[in-house]
Amino acid sequence: MKGYGTIYLARGCSDVLIHISQTSSTPMYEQVLSEIQRLIVMGHMKPDEMLPSIRELSKELMTSGITIRRAYQELERSGFIYTRKGKGSFVSTLSEEKLAKWKLDQVRVPLLESVVQAKKLNLEEEQFQDLIKHIWQETDEH
């Protein structure tokens, strides 16, 4: 049985999946958007590979078509996919700069919250950087 809100996007490739949560406070379309962006950036979906149709993905994720359509529109606007009328949506070829920028953007927001929190608690910049170093090494071991 397929997992709830999980879809294997590229068939036959078990680690390529979208995971979304119906109970998350992040809007559905944003979840779908960032999950597909992640798959593209990490190379799980190759340039010119076709995406599932809006209706297909909507059924698989148990989400309304209009939510998927909105995610696809944002993907197109941000240059991650392109659409051929009557054929479908395909993965765009992305520049290295764009890939790097996207990855940094994903980390920037949560990091910003942490920095604001650290300043509120009067931590020193050095302490904060040490903490990052520490966490970085700690998570390496696993």
Binding site: R55, E56, S58, K59, M62, G65
Partner: peptide
């Protein structure tokens, strides 16, 4: 709900 999503597939 799945049945309804199925119904509008085409």
């Amino acid at each position: 709900l799945e049945l309804l999503l199925d119904f509008v597939q085409d």
